[in-house]
Design a protein around this nucleic acid. Structure first.
Length: 938
RNA sequence: GCUUGCGUGGCGGAAUUGGUAGACGCACAGCACUCAAAAUGCUGCGGUUUAUGACCAUGAGGGUUCGAUUCCCUCCGCAAGCACCA
């Protein structure tokens, strides 16, 4: 019987004592492979079930690559600074430093008990001064190059946590940690100018082997939009303001402008009469939290400033409003509003009765030459009592339509609509509900043999009563007037114009799609894209605007009013200058403090009186008391692993050149816009400085899925009875069984529920493997019966490990073991190969068998990975499938050398196939070599 | 609302340059071993049926094809991300 407890301990000690997985980074003779795990926060609760999943995945690849002759770097460390660790320490009444050290000890013990092939000599912790010296050094470079800035700006302030937070740490207006409310507040802050790298961060994404969803999240987060700046003069003043728009082609349709309540010129342009209302509105906005702003977003609010802006394109005066639907932090904090073609502006204009000017027409039908032009209407009449629509059934002549007609000279579209409804259907008592934007429609009129282009206005009416006049028809008009339901309308009305009109009346809102410009002077007749180009050219020519690219990505707020982080190596001097520390002064050590909690919104380091006050060149100064965010240290740790003890540089340039980029990076998807974006930014910056040799640090990224509780719900405080502790499983089933089970559960990337019986099953498989040796089923001579399946197994397992499809690799190994039991014996050769294949997943038991039953002296970790012969993986016969009309009617075992003709003959000879061919005419026979024959009959 | 994924037995899942749907495992049932149980080994296991066969079945409905889990369209459901970004 296999004793996993003793055995697992034994080999863990052996690997440690023999430094089996120590990497000689200077050995450039072998190809390199850098496998990286996202290093954990050493929280107080220890490892959770999800940790072993990702870590086993990289471990499998690491062990296989090592056996395949690669020099593999597989390190581990601790992301121990930051809010989570500090908050946890406060909650449990500990000091962050001791608490962190204790947790690291626990984590390390747990990881070792899982048998991971880490090179522990490269262990790093972001909290170690020898490490954060370089975090501060990178900050210094960024500061000197102007990317780290100390500026006054609106930030996310969390009162409960007593600190500012970066945008990715705020979710739905609440803090990611703890879910406390977050408000906007102006503060002098350290920020990183990550927007300066927006374009590079966006472009480089294309070439990365990353999950598409994560790339998309980063693209959205960066949020590039191409548009234009347009300058507006404020009428009768010397003031101007600039708006950002992606739709400068709609400038002729601008009927008002909106400034964000915080915009600089608001107070200067507001008229006396409006002053009170404006100030009141500004006051309300300022006190609203992020959460309140989003919650109240359903209804538009705003106040007129009393001032007017001059539209540069036609010199029309349009009112200037303020509203919180315009954000101070995006674009220029001001917009031109085009209600006809923007949903938000439309909603606002409707609420405040501001004019709406259509400048684009949607098009239906196809443009033809020599079209005659007409103006027309489509009238849709609805009867509330029956919820039916009034239609005209032209039968063969044109199918079902609403009421349509041409506008006569001197008639308004609305008058025309009333007239047409009365003439064609007799109904006179109708009330107008809606008028749609005009649609441009192209069609061919059979009776006149002419092409028409019409400009059509749609109307929706409500039937007030069934009062009727006599219909007034031309003699050639033959149709029936019918009331039909919405379903019939959608089913039977085929005409594009009528359908589109119906859609407009149903949905309402602005017309935001593409179309043809009208009411726009030099843009008339152009589609959106051409019009944008032409307008930009016009704006630039007249010096009232220019092309502009804008990003949603904001400055990375880089300071926390907390204790447990890297001190910022800056001194604010008495003479109002800032001094960055000399390299020799780094690391700036975090002072030990008994009371590390901030008071009254002040950073804890404010209380470190002795540490805080410095004198440089005879001038007094005060150190920066904010610390860096948790994501600072984790933004470059993958560089430090390569050369963790280097005292002169973040790492030796030659080593960086050899080992970068990371070949495989595995971690959770929750870091998509935090860590994964910040790391890319720092790496790209260091690349530009010539310190790092690659543009992108992580070539291949994979997110492991979440291990859910057996109830299918995320493990956590909510359902403590479903939480699985990996250490308990190591105790009860062994590390090998846990590793095997987590890899067999399903695809690495998928969320998967835990199953206790599934875990038992994995343990049983290991026992089943062990029993082969225990019961002496291994023989020295070869077992030809297993040859094919063995070679197939080596091939599949090797490929599947490479592509991280561990579940199917394990399934193939189970198939192999089932075959061994069927034969009841296995040759030494195949047994050794199989144990090597299983080793990366279950390193302890396989190591034990390798020594005890297979008689090796050296660790299996340095053995050579088994190979397969392609010729031995293929069968010489196969089961040919015979289909009749695509349905399987027979199967027959044939040789792989069977020709197409022979296949057909054999197929037609199968009794059950014959039955299905009887009295049928064979039309076609499709033969796929080594697969099937499909006989098509009639 | 927008973006990106996903939807297959009782359960986890397998199969995609379009070619036997349900590999492998769990659960379940039967047999062997045993005084018995556990453990172990072997066998069966999508549904219906008149059962060596036929029909139905990969969220629903349509399409392309000799043939669709796989490709296309519409709809439904679930998950994640974004959410007044001009």
């Amino acid at each position: 019987m296999y004793n996993f407890k003793e055995t697992e301990k034994k080999w863990q000690t052996y690997w440690e004592e023999n430094e089996t997985f120590k990497t000689d980074v200077w050995d450039f003779s072998k190809p390199k492979f850098y496998a990286l795990d996202m290093f954990p926060y050493p929280s107080g609760v220890g490892l959770h079930a999800g940790h072993p999943e990702g870590y086993t995945a990289t471990d499998i690849v690491t062990r296989m690559k090592k056996m395949q002759g690669y020099n593999v770097l597989h390190p581990m460390g601790w992301d121990a600074f930051g809010l989570p660790a500090e908050q946890y320490a406060i909650n449990t009444g500990n000091h962050p430093e001791q608490f962190t050290l204790d947790n690291i000890k626990t984590f390390k013990g747990q990881l070792k008990s899982l048998g991971f092939a880490y090179d522990w000599s490269r262990e790093i912790s972001t909290t170690n001064p020898t490490y954060y010296k370089w975090t501060q050094w990178i900050f210094k470079q960024l500061y000197l190059d102007g990317y780290a800035k100390y500026i006054d700006m609106p930030v996310n302030w969390c009162e409960e946590l007593g600190t500012v937070l970066s945008n990715d740490e705020v979710i739905d207006g609440k803090s990611e940690r703890g879910g406390y409310p977050v408000v906007r507040k102006n503060m002098k802050q350290w920020v990183m100018d990550i927007p300066a790298y927006a374009e590079k961060l966006l472009n480089n994404l294309d070439d990365l082997d990353w999950p598409e969803s994560t790339k998309e999240i980063q693209r959205n987060w960066i949020g590039k939009s191409v548009g234009a700046l347009v300058d507006f003069k404020v009428a009768n003043t010397h003031h101007t303001f600039t708006v950002f728009t992606t739709r400068c082609d709609t400038l002729f349709g601008a009927t008002y402008c909106v400034l964000s309540p915080e915009h600089k010129i608001v107070n200067e342009i507001t008229t006396e009469e409006q002053k009170e209302a404006i100030e009141e509105y500004q006051r309300i906005c300022a006190t609203k939290s992020e959460l309140e702003r989003t919650e109240l977003s359903k209804d538009k609010t705003g106040v007129f400033t009393g001032a007017y802006a001059i539209n540069p394109v036609n010199n029309k005066e349009i009112p200037i409003w303020i509203s919180d639907y315009v954000l101070a932090t995006y674009g220029t904090g001001a917009i031109m509003a085009v209600p006809a073609h923007d949903d938000r502006d439309y909603e606002f204009a409707k609420k405040f009765n501001i004019p709406i000017i259509q400048v684009l027409e949607e098009e239906t039908g196809e443009t033809k030459e020599n079209e005659s032009q007409k103006n027309s209407i489509v009238a849709i009449v609805h009867d509330q009592e029956t919820d039916q629509y009034l239609t005209i059934n032209w039968h063969q002549l044109g199918g079902r339509l609403f009421i349509g007609g041409t506008i006569k000279e001197g008639e308004t579209p609305l008058e025309c609509a009333f007239r047409e409804v009365a003439e064609e259907t007799g109904y006179t008592d109708i009330e107008q509900l809606k008028e749609t934007f005009k649609i441009r429609h192209h069609y061919y009129a059979h009776n006149k043999d002419k092409y028409f282009q019409i400009e059509c206005t749609g109307f929706l009416f409500e039937l007030k009563s069934h009062n009727k006049q006599t219909q007034n028809l031309d003699e050639d008009e033959a149709f029936d007037v019918e009331w039909v339901s919405k379903d019939i309308v959608l089913e039977e009305i085929k005409d594009a114009l009528h359908l589109k009109t119906f859609e407009y009346t149903e949905n309402g809102g602005a017309m935001t799609g593409d179309g043809i410009h009208i009411n726009s002077e030099f843009l008339n007749g152009l589609y959106k894209e051409e019009a944008i180009q032409k307008m930009i050219a016009w704006l630039e020519e007249h010096h009232v605007g220019k092309k502009q690219i804008n990003y949603r990505l904001r400055d990375w707020i880089f300071a926390r009013q907390r204790y447990w982080g890297e001190p910022v190596p800056i001194v604010h001097m008495e003479d109002e200058t800032d001094r960055v520390l000399e390299d020799e002064e780094l690391p700036l050590i975090l002072p030990k403090m008994d009371d590390y909690k901030g008071r009254n919104g002040k950073a804890p380091l404010e209380n470190a009186e002795e540490w805080k006050h410095v004198e440089i060149d005879g001038i007094e100064g005060i150190r920066e008391t904010s610390t860096m965010p948790g994501s600072a240290g984790s933004s470059w740790y993958f560089l430090r692993y390569i050369d963790p003890n280097n005292e002169d540089a973040i790492a030796d340039p030659e080593l960086l050149k050899h080992w970068l980029p990371v070949d495989l990076y595995v971690g959770g998807p929750e870091h998509a816009v935090g860590h994964l974006l910040y790391s890319r930014f720092w790496n790209e910056y260091l690349y530009d400085k010539g310190i790092v040799p690659v543009k992108e640090p992580f070539q291949k990224l994979v997110h492991q899925g979440m291990i859910l509780g057996a109830n299918g719900i995320k493990m956590g405080k909510r359902y403590p009875e479903y939480v699985v502790n990996p250490s308990d499983v190591v105790e009860s089933h062994g590390a090998d069984a846990l590793r095997l089970y987590e890899m067999f559960m399903g695809p690495l990337q998928a969320d998967k529920p835990w199953s206790q019986t599934g875990l038992d099953g994995s343990k049983k498989f290991l026992d089943r493997v062990y029993r082969i040796f225990e019961e002496g089923k291994m023989v020295e001579e070869t077992t030809p019966e297993l040859e094919k399946i063995y070679h197939q197994t080596v091939k599949k397992v090797t490929n599947d490990y490479e592509t991280l499809n561990f579940n199917t690799a394990i399934s193939q190994m189970m198939i192999f073991i089932n075959a061994v039991y069927k034969e009841d014996k296995i040759s030494r050769e195949y047994a050794e190969g199989f144990i090597q294949l299983l080793n990366p997943v279950c390193p302890h038991m396989t190591e034990e068998i390798w020594h005890t039953y297979l008689g090796h002296d050296e660790t299996i970790a340095v053995s050579t990975w088994p190979t397969y012969e392609e010729s031995k993986t293929v069968e010489d016969t196969y089961e040919m499938i015979v289909q009749v009309n695509g349905k399987v009617r027979g199967k027959i075992e044939v040789s792989t050398s069977t020709t197409k003709e022979e296949m057909e003959t054999l197929a037609k000879d199968i009794p059950n196939v014959k039955i299905h061919l009887e009295d049928k005419e064979i039309i076609k026979v499709i033969t796929v070599p080594k697969k099937l024959v499909n006989i098509v009959v009639k």
